[in-house]
Every structure is written in structure tokens, then in C-alpha cells.
């Protein structure tokens, strides 16, 4: 008996080849209006980015709606143009495996996060955007909204070092003011087994529109918080730490550098949400 082949729900390839510059060009004006009018977004520092493949490392915010990711994609694709060096973001499988949304994300330059994907993309000459803190950071408690929470994850350091590319840190404030996160949900995720079965490491109590009080984070209507984003000068791990880095030292240095910049950016806030 022949097996029935179920057609893939995804029609857009998962990789640099799936990125569609014309699609991005069509979407940019809508994104620009949304971020300019709704989030009053400011992005600075792209002049620090060298003309070579780099690993952008950002702090992740905003629960499942991750407005900072979309803002960075918007700003990058307008600063360097859609025809410039492609920017590929690594996304959680919850995004890339979702029918329709996954295809749209791939056309915008997102690929499913995996151990070797970022390296493959860097080797193809693209820039890569990663959020080491992942869902743990995007769902960190509101009280920690201006803290870097990478949860001890150092894979991004090894990736940049092995690939011989510089790390370009990107920090942003405001994203975590678009949703209210009441607690740290790591213990809940572990108790429910979400960390093993879904690779979801955090299930906190959140308060968002339209869900109200909810365990975990579903895509929500973000509050119109002012978002500020700063691209920092590159960090060359090879130059700073040589061929055999102490990964703990490197981790401390990168996260400390980002924390300094994030706190300085946060100091520009007059009132949370309003900006």
C-alpha cells in the first residue's frame, strides 16, 4: 500500500533563498507607519555596522508579539536597502511552523532556529540576527524590562567565534512595556514539561489585550509603548579573546556591554509606555 504524501504546508523555502526582497519592499511602508505612529520608534547606530557578515545580537522583548524584531527588520532593510546584504533572523519554531505566518516570516528573512542554520547563512554572506535570551527574555517580568536576560546561553558566542564574524549588539527599550508580565515563568514551563516538548522555557502570567490575564504569551495587541533601539559598535571575539576564549568571560563582557547601553537607553525614558 502506497503511503499518502501530505503536502507541506509551507511553500516558501527556509533559508536565504526564501527571503523575498520585493515582498519586503511592499511591506516596509506599512511597517514604517505602524512603528512611526504607534510606537514612535527611534533607531540609531547603523553606522557602526561593518561591510561584512556580522552576527547581530539583540535583547528580546514584547512577549509573543516581539515588536523589537519587526522594528529591527524595518530599520535594517531601509538603512541598507532590501537589495543590500540580506538580514536573516533566527525564529522559534512556534513562528516558523505556523501555517501562513511561517511563510510570511520566511519571506521577510526569518528561518527556523537550529544548531547549524546560522552558520550556513553567515557562510552564504548574509547577516544574522539572534536573540540568545529567546522566550525567557521576551517573557521576562516587567520589573526586569531594562535587564539583559540571556539565561546563561553562550551558543551565539561560539557561533560568532567559529564563523570568524563580529558580534554587533543591539539593545532596545520599550518592547517589554507593550505587555505586562507578572512573574518569571521558568518553573511553570518546567513543571508542565513545555521546556522538553515544545522548547518553550517560560510560561509566566501575562496581562495583555485582548487576552487579559493569561498563563504564557499569545500574540497580543501591544500597548503603544515608545521603542528606542541602539546598534552598538562591533565586538571582535577573535581579537579580544584569541583562538581559545574563556566563554564565561566573553559572555560576561558582551552582556555587560549590552547592559550598560540598555540602561543608558532606559534613562532616556520619562514615563514607561509614554516614552
Amino acid at each position: 500500500m502506497a503511503l499518502v504524501r501530505v503536502p507541506s504546508l509551507h511553500r516558501v523555502p527556509d533559508g536565504v533563498e526564501g527571503r523575498d526582497p520585493e515582498y519586503i519592499r511592499r511591506i516596509l511602508p506599512r511597517l514604517w507607519l505602524a512603528f512611526e505612529l504607534y510606537f514612535r520608534a527611534e533607531v540609531d547606530g547603523f553606522e557602526h555596522v561593518p561591510d561584512e557578515p556580522v552576527l547581530f545580537v539583540g535583547n528580546h522583548s514584547g512577549g509573543a508579539s516581539v515588536p523589537d524584531t519587526w522594528l529591527f527588520l524595518l530599520a535594517y532593510n531601509t538603512y541598507f536597502t532590501v537589495e543590500g546584504r540580506p538580514l536573516i533572523g533566527l525564529a522559534h519554531r512556534v513562528i516558523t511552523d505556523t501555517p501562513l505566518i511561517g511563510d510570511l516570516a520566511r519571506k521577510f528573512g526569518m528561518v527556523k532556529a537550529g544548531p547549524h542554520r546560522a552558520r550556513e547563512v553567515l557562510d552564504q554572506g548574509a547577516n544574522v540576527l539572534v536573540y540568545p535570551g529567546g522566550d525567557v527574555e521576551a517573557l521576562r517580568p516587567t520589573r526586569d524590562r531594562n535587564r539583559i536576560v540571556f539565561d546563561g546561553r553562550k551558543g551565539f558566542l561560539k557561533l560568532a567565534h567559529d564563523a570568524g564574524v563580529k558580534i554587533v549588539p543591539v539593545v532596545a527599550t520599550g518592547g517589554q512595556e507593550t505587555v505586562l508580565v507578572l512573574n518569571d515563568g521558568r518553573a511553570t514551563a518546567k513543571a508542565l514539561g513545555f521546556d522538553r516538548f515544545l522548547r518553550i522555557k517560560s510560561v509566566p502570567l501575562t496581562l495583555s489585550i485582548p487576552w487579559g490575564l493569561l498563563p504564557g504569551g499569545l500574540p497580543h495587541l501591544p500597548l503603544p509603548a515608545k521603542i528606542r533601539m541602539q546598534v552598538l559598535p562591533p565586538i571582535d571575539l577573535q581579537e579580544r579573546y584569541g583562538d581559545e576564549p574563556d566563554w564565561d568571560d566573553a559572555y560576561d563582557y558582551v552582556t555587560s556591554t549590552m547592559q550598560v547601553a540598555l540602561s543608558a537607553l532606559a534613562a532616556r525614558t520619562i514615563l514607561p509606555v509614554l516614552g
Binding site: T257, S263, A264, A266, A267, P272
Partner: peptide, 27 residues
């Protein structure tokens, strides 16, 4: 409102100080 603003400035200053002491130079 000023207390919140002052607090965020203090955090920024403290983080710069910490980084300066632990890594040698403020960014």
C-alpha cells in the same frame, strides 16, 4: 515622576561604573 527618572539615571550610572571597574573602560 522624577523619582522614576532619577532611578533610571542612577541605574545607568551604576552600570557604567560596574563595567568600568570590571572590564577596564566604560563603553
Amino acid at each position: 515622576i522624577a523619582r522614576g527618572i532619577a532611578g533610571r539615571h542612577l541605574v545607568a550610572g551604576l552600570e557604567q561604573l560596574r563595567h568600568h571597574l570590571e572590564f577596564g573602560s566604560p563603553r
